[in-house]
C-alpha cells in the first residue's frame, strides 16, 4: 500500500515535469542566476532538514526516504540520459531534465540528512553521497551563473570585446594583444604543441591547451583556436575563451570527495546481499 502511494506520488511529479516540458520546453535558466539560485538552494536545504528532524513520519519524509524513491529517481535519470544519448530526448536544459535532476538532488540530500542523523556515520557513505550532491549542485545551480565569451586576438591591435554563443557583445575588464604564436609539428605535419604569448594590459601571459590562465577567482582564459598556417609561417591571430564559473569550487570539492569515496568503495565494497548486511545503508 505504502509502495503504491510512493509510486503514485512520483507519477504525479514526473507527470508535472512532462506537462511543463510540453508547455514551456526550455527551462528559464537565466531567471535562476545569483542570488535566486543560492536562495533556492538554501531554502530547500532548510526545508528538508526541518522535515528530516521534525516530521520524519510525514508523507514527504516517507517519499524521500523510501528505497523505491532512490531506485525510481536513478531510473528516471538513466532514461533521460538514454533518450539524450539516442538523440530523441529532451536536452539537458529542458524542464524534464531539470526536474529529474532536482528530484535526484532532493533524494540525495535527504539521504545525507538521514545518514548524519544516525548514531554511527559511515565515512564512505558520507563522502560518496555528499560528494555527489555537492558536485551535482555546483553544476546544476551554478549553470545559471556560468558564462563563456570568445575573443579573437590579432597581432596588430589590442582588443577587449568578446562575444557569447548567441552573438551578444561584452566589453571585458582586460585587453589582449597577440605577441607571438609558437607551433611545433610532428614529422607528418600534424601540430604537436602550440602556445600563444599575449600582452594582457602590459603583462606577458602564456596560454596553451590544458594550461589555462587564471584571470580572477571566477574567470579563466583558454586557448581554443588559431589561424591555421603551414609550417614555418606565423599565425596572425588566436581565439581565446573566457569562462566565468563562480560555482566551480563547489564542483571541485564535490569531485574530490567523490574520488575519496570511490577509493573507499573499491577498498571496502558494500555488502549488498541481505545475509551479509546488518542494517540497510539506504
Amino acid at each position: 500500500m505504502k509502495s503504491r502511494r510512493i509510486y503514485l506520488q512520483w507519477a504525479v511529479y514526473f507527470g508535472a515535469a512532462l506537462v511543463c516540458q510540453l508547455l514551456f520546453h526550455d527551462f528559464p535558466r537565466d531567471f535562476f542566476a545569483f542570488p535566486v539560485n543560492a536562495a533556492c538552494v538554501l531554502l530547500c536545504c532548510v526545508v528538508l532538514w526541518i522535515v528530516c528532524r521534525e516530521k520524519p513520519q510525514s508523507w514527504f519524509s516517507e517519499l524521500l526516504s523510501a528505497p523505491q524513491s532512490t531506485c525510481l529517481v536513478v531510473f528516471a535519470f538513466f532514461l533521460s540520459c538514454l533518450a539524450l544519448g539516442l538523440g530523441f530526448g529532451p536536452q539537458a536544459d529542458s524542464w524534464w531534465f531539470v526536474m529529474v535532476l532536482a528530484a535526484l538532488l532532493a533524494v540525495l540530500l535527504y539521504t545525507v540528512f538521514r545518514g548524519v542523523s544516525r548514531r554511527r556515520v559511515r565515512i564512505r557513505f558520507l563522502l560518496i553521497h555528499v560528494g555527489l550532491f555537492v558536485a551535482l549542485l555546483g553544476g546544476f545551480a551554478g549553470s545559471a551563473d556560468t558564462q563563456q565569451w570568445r575573443v579573437m586576438v590579432p597581432r596588430d591591435v589590442s582588443v577587449n570585446e568578446a562575444f557569447d554563443a548567441e552573438g551578444g557583445k561584452k566589453t571585458l575588464s582586460w585587453s589582449f594583444l597577440l605577441e607571438s604564436f609558437m607551433i611545433e609539428y610532428h614529422e607528418d605535419g600534424v601540430p604537436r604543441d602550440f602556445e600563444a604569448v599575449l600582452d594582457m594590459d602590459g603583462k606577458q601571459v602564456r596560454v596553451k591547451v590544458n594550461h589555462p590562465y587564471r584571470l580572477s577567482a571566477a574567470d579563466e582564459l583558454y586557448l581554443v583556436d588559431y589561424e591555421h598556417v603551414t609550417a614555418g609561417e606565423q599565425a596572425g591571430y588566436c581565439i581565446l575563451e573566457i569562462v566565468h564559473q563562480p560555482w566551480k569550487y563547489l564542483q571541485w570539492a564535490g569531485i574530490w570527495m567523490l574520488v575519496a569515496g570511490s577509493v573507499l568503495l573499491f577498498i571496502q565494497g558494500i555488502p549488498l546481499a541481505a545475509k551479509d548486511r546488518k542494517e540497510p545503508e539506504k
Partner: peptide, 27 residues
C-alpha cells in the same frame, strides 16, 4: 553533455541502479 559523456552517465546510472536495487531487495 557531449555524446561520450552522456553515454558515460547512462552506463554509470545503470550500475548505481544495480547497487541500490540490491540494497533494496537484498537478493
Amino acid at each position: 553533455w557531449d555524446p561520450k559523456e552522456v553515454w558515460a552517465a547512462v552506463t554509470w546510472s545503470v550500475y548505481v541502479l544495480y547497487i541500490h536495487m540490491r540494497l533494496c531487495s537484498g537478493r
